[in-house]
């Protein structure tokens, strides 16, 4: 199973700043290993951010994103104490959801 994400959600004025660090190899499928064999593609494809259960960001990513990627979002209409859930699904069907509370 994938390692947990690290999520930080903070109110800056009336905007909630969300920063997410994900633990993922993000293999492009174009890299070769030491033996010259192609390393199979393995990257996050879908990404969602939900605020109190309601999806506020939904996006697609591909192999051009770096290993252990960092994402930043700004969301209006949030307040301290709200629940932020971030989820991803990769091309192998692995998935992960982590939560934090807006500070």
């Amino acid at each position: 199973m994938a390692d947990p994400m690290k999520i930080r959600a903070q109110m800056k004025g009336d905007v909630c700043e969300i920063r997410v660090l994900m633990s993922h190899p993000m293999e492009t499928g174009q890299r070769k290993d030491a033996d010259g064999k192609t390393v199979p593609a393995h990257f996050i494809q879908n990404l969602t951010v939900a605020l109190n259960g309601k999806t506020v960001v939904s996006g697609q990513t591909a192999g051009s994103v770096s290993r252990n990627p960092v994402f930043g979002f700004k969301v209006k209409g949030a307040k301290a104490g709200d629940k932020v859930a971030v989820s991803w699904v990769d091309n192998k069907g692995d998935k992960r959801t982590d939560e934090t509370t807006v500070a």
Binding site: R19, L21, N68
Partner: peptide, 10 residues
């Protein structure tokens, strides 16, 4: 947002 934090968690 240093990915080093992921390794701290681990």
């Amino acid at each position: 947002s240093n990915p080093a934090e992921l390794f701290e968690m681990k």
